[in-house]
Simulated assay, not measured.
Amino acid sequence: MIYELRQYTLRPGRRDTLIELFEREFVETQEAAGMRVAGTFRNPDAPDTFPWLRAFPDMPARKAALEAFYGGPVWQANRDAANATMIDSDDVLLLRALAEPPAWERPPVGAAELPPSMYVATICHVEDGFAGFFDSEVAPVLAEAGVPVVARFETEHAENTFPRLPVRTGETVFVWFARFDTPEDERVVDLPMLKTRLTAAPQRLRLRPTARSAMR
C-alpha cells in the first residue's frame, strides 16, 4: 500500500474548524473515490497543525483516486472553507507500507467522543537498507521496553503523478508508529544504535486520534 503522511500548518485557532469539516464531508467521499483515510489526529505539541494519514492500493490507483476526489463535487463545494483554515498543506511524505497500521470500525458522522489512545510517529532520515536494521536491532528493544511498533513505512520514490498536490522529494525516510492506550502510558526509549544510522535528527510526533479516526 502507498501512504501519504500529511501535516498541515493551520491558521491560529482553526484546527477544530478543519477537523469538523473534514470528518463531516471528506472521509466517506475520499474513500468512495478509492482511497482510505487511515488516521486523523491532533498533535498536542503543535495545536495549529493537522496530521493525517491516507492510503492507496498502488501509485496508479492513487492518481485515479485523487483525480476523482479533487475533481468531484464535494471538494469543489467545500474547498474554499477548507483552504481558509490552512497556511500550508505541502508537508507530505509519500510512503510505502512495510507493516500496515491497525484500524478499528469508524464511528459515524457526528461522533464526538475522542479515543483515549495516543500514537507516536517517529520520522527518521536514513540511507537505503535501513528497514532490515530496524527490524533486527531496534524493534526488539522497543518491544522489550513495552513500546510495540504497530506500523512501519519507508519512502516511496516513484514520481508524484498528481503534481497538483506536492510531496517532499530528495529525502529518504523511515517512519514507525507506536500505540499507547493512554498518553500516560507513553514511554521514550533510548536507542543509541540509531546515532550512526541517521542522516538528520529524528522527528517525533505525538498524535491523539480524532473522534472519527480509523486508527484509535
Score class of each variant (00 low, 15 high):
Ile2Gln: 03
Arg6Glu: 13
Arg6Pro: 12
Gln7Tyr: 08
Tyr8Cys: 05
Tyr8Ala: 01
Pro12Gln: 13
Arg14Tyr: 15
Thr17Ile: 09
Glu20Phe: 06
Glu20Met: 05
Leu21Phe: 02
Phe22Cys: 01
Phe22Met: 01
Glu23Ser: 03
Thr29Trp: 06
Gln30Lys: 11
Gln30Thr: 04
Glu31Arg: 12
Ala32Asn: 11
Ala32Asp: 14
Ala33Gly: 06
Met35Asp: 09
Arg36Tyr: 05
Val37Asp: 07
Thr40Arg: 08
Phe41Val: 04
Phe41Lys: 01
Pro44Thr: 02
Asp45His: 10
Ala46Ser: 13
Ala46Asn: 04
Asp48Leu: 13
Pro51Thr: 00
Pro57Lys: 01
Pro57Arg: 02
Arg62Leu: 10
Ala65Thr: 11
Leu66Cys: 14
Glu67Tyr: 03
Glu67Pro: 05
Phe69Gln: 08
Tyr70Gln: 08
Gly71Lys: 06
Pro73Val: 01
Val74His: 05
Val74Phe: 07
Arg79Val: 10
Asp80Trp: 03
Ala81Met: 00
Ala81Tyr: 03
Ala81Leu: 14
Ala82Gly: 11
Ala82Asn: 08
Ala82His: 06
Asn83Leu: 15
Ala84Ile: 06
Thr85Val: 13
Met86Tyr: 06
Val92Gln: 03
Pro102Ile: 00
Trp104Asn: 11
Pro107Asn: 02
Pro108Phe: 03
Gly110Lys: 05
Gly110Ala: 07
Ala112Cys: 12
Leu114Glu: 14
Pro115Ala: 09
Met118Ser: 12
Met118Asp: 08
Tyr119Met: 06
Ala121Lys: 02
Ala121Ser: 15
Thr122Gln: 09
Thr122Lys: 08
Ile123Thr: 07
Cys124Phe: 09
His125Gly: 00
Val126Asn: 04
Glu127Lys: 13
Asp128Leu: 12
Ala131Met: 05
Gly132Ala: 15
Gly132Ile: 08
Phe133Cys: 04
Asp135Ile: 10
Asp135Lys: 00
Ser136Cys: 00
Ser136Thr: 15
Val138Glu: 04
Ala139Arg: 13
Val141Gln: 08
Gly146Thr: 10
Ala151Leu: 08
Phe153Asn: 10
Phe153Gln: 09
Glu154Phe: 12
Glu156Met: 04
Glu159Asp: 15
Glu159Leu: 13
Thr161Glu: 10
Phe162Thr: 04
Phe162Leu: 02
Pro163Ala: 00
Arg164Phe: 14
Pro166Gly: 04
Arg168Gly: 08
Thr169Gln: 14
Glu171Leu: 12
Glu171Trp: 03
Thr172Phe: 04
Phe174His: 15
Phe177Cys: 07
Arg179Asp: 05
Asp181Trp: 04
Pro183Arg: 00
Pro183Asp: 09
Asp185Val: 00
Asp185Arg: 05
Glu186His: 12
Arg187His: 12
Leu191Trp: 01
Pro192Lys: 01
Leu194Thr: 06
Lys195Gln: 12
Ala200Phe: 06
Arg204Cys: 07
Arg208Trp: 13
Thr210His: 03
Thr210Met: 05
Ala211Phe: 11
Arg212Met: 11
Arg212Glu: 06
Ser213Leu: 08
